[in-house]
Design a protein around this nucleic acid. Sequence first.
DNA 1: TCGATGAATGACAACGTTGTCGAACATTAA
DNA 2: TTAATGTTCGACAACGTTGTCATTCATCGA
Lengths: 336, 336
Amino acid sequence: MVSIKDVAEHAGTSFKTVSRVINNDAGVREETRERVQAAIDALGYRPNSAARMMRNQKSGVIGFISDEVVTQPYAGELLLGAQEVASEHDKVLMVVNIEHDRKRQQRAIDMLLERRVEALVYASYYHREIELPQEMLQVPSVLVNCFTTEAVLPTFVPDEVQAGYDATRLLIEQGHTRIGMITLNPQIVAAQKRLEGYRRALDEAGIAFDAELIVRGEPRFDEPAESACVESAVGSLMALDKRPTALVCGKDEFAMQVYFLLARFGLQVGRDLAVTSFDNQRLIAPGLTPGLTTMELPHLEMGRAALRCLFNRMDDRSTRLIPFSPIVRESHRLKA
Amino acid sequence: MVSIKDVAEHAGTSFKTVSRVINNDAGVREETRERVQAAIDALGYRPNSAARMMRNQKSGVIGFISDEVVTQPYAGELLLGAQEVASEHDKVLMVVNIEHDRKRQQRAIDMLLERRVEALVYASYYHREIELPQEMLQVPSVLVNCFTTEAVLPTFVPDEVQAGYDATRLLIEQGHTRIGMITLNPQIVAAQKRLEGYRRALDEAGIAFDAELIVRGEPRFDEPAESACVESAVGSLMALDKRPTALVCGKDEFAMQVYFLLARFGLQVGRDLAVTSFDNQRLIAPGLTPGLTTMELPHLEMGRAALRCLFNRMDDRSTRLIPFSPIVRESHRLKA
DNA sequence: TCGATGAATGACAACGTTGTCGAACATTAA
DNA sequence: TTAATGTTCGACAACGTTGTCATTCATCGA
């Protein structure tokens, strides 16, 4: 590889002068600068970042550890937001997908620390508690879409309670009082907190909570995977004496299935049942008829916020709740 | 940061001996090795990869340039396959999303070359022709899911013709002879080649091609975005004197809409119309009833194959067609 | 003509590592 | 005992860069 010395020889200067030129340092005669620049272009010289890193003791790299952010639909936005802010600060992300694997996680962290990352981001694709790799305390770090029992790092998570509240409010405002909910696996944070938001919205509106209206759309971690879960959930709601007139779905996939399942009862979303949901999956939500009103997870914004935090050195250990965006289409209101 | 010299001092040896220990070089007395190891652990020493890179003239990094692989649903699998093979060879990927932006692309390439990547991967999220950044010829490179007019690099793309053929075959084998097709934007490769495969399957089965059965599900690049495109496509198919009994959909999203739209005509997928499609979007295909039979894009395999090619130094400029996987569910056959 | 001043440039060390070579020491054979 | 051999270890240079300091050279005022 061509080095600063080769350029110097070609330009007939000392290599230090070349260094000055590539760093735009003052104190180089214009004529010399041009001569050096010509040599750089002629030889196709590129500064060696490894050498720079050694001198400057800075890598310019931020480590991004994710369980499966990259492979999960829409969650990649998180990465996108992070990349955007990083590159504004002339940093690059080094992304490693560890796939929930302990060994890979350790290897990833070792590798990143050996590369002298200036900071670490740990991102989960779904909101959950994690066991913090202790090495993360050695460099400025943030958690995104995940958290630890005791808050030891700046943490950015979606505001699930608010989202549950908003999704329910949209229906209440349309006059509904019998509002069903198809929940996610109750062991995950989103399921619990969104239900909490749902109850808060009912309370506030003076609507009594009815446990019959809460049904599960997916199995618990310890239960066998079951494809018909949403089907039986919808079935049990429809079997009620007083059927719900509106439904909050735990995710857009549930909503999609609801659109289909309703047909069995001669019902239609948007005519007989109002629906809201969570995620705003681009593949599903806009393509349904009527378009699905859904709460979009703030992935992009979490990615951005986390990196801004790193650059602002706000290592205050606090947990920031990032709001969902309501994507209002038609499914939450009924047409006569 | 603690260096090899600090460790040496702590262990009472020369720093060269420490180097030998961390590299597992022969010729270190067991007792010395243990003493050094203890010092390493005590000080929390980690080798500085920048210094190693300088000495060894190797970065251990492979650059991965993508337009939007990360943000697009399922296409992240491509990245996953690449990462898998890379890490088998003790290399790390440095991923940069350039979002179809010329400047970002240039910045990304400069950055990667300055970091002395050992190879470059250029991946597009949808199969298309690209303009090759000339700098890619400076290091071993491969193209994934994209290609150049003149083949100058090893290229890995999905076998669209075969997929079109297979998707159609599945229906022909069920006895269908009136097979409609909802195509993607005809300006993209997938649309053209899959249609070619469709025609080949018909020819082979002795079924006459009928242009009326080919309708467009999405606008061309130069047309305004239109959400009702699939709707009118299905409408025109249903208005035919001889309606098709089977349908090949350009993507799972089309299929999803078809499931809904059919209801307007009192028809049902799986009873009145057999359907196949492309992509196997995890969010959609398994959740439809009946389950959608669809051709899965070989993203994972393309990622793997591309990196294997890099490691095998097979820079033969040839184009490798990677086969789709037929994901057979129920939608391609009709129940009485 | 001289020293003083400032601008332009170069010599050198250092960053942390590994390859090369030689030195020190122990062991073996004669 | 001596020489030969092998084992263990350290001194030194080099990788490509930038910061520090010194040197060269032209210019200027006295």
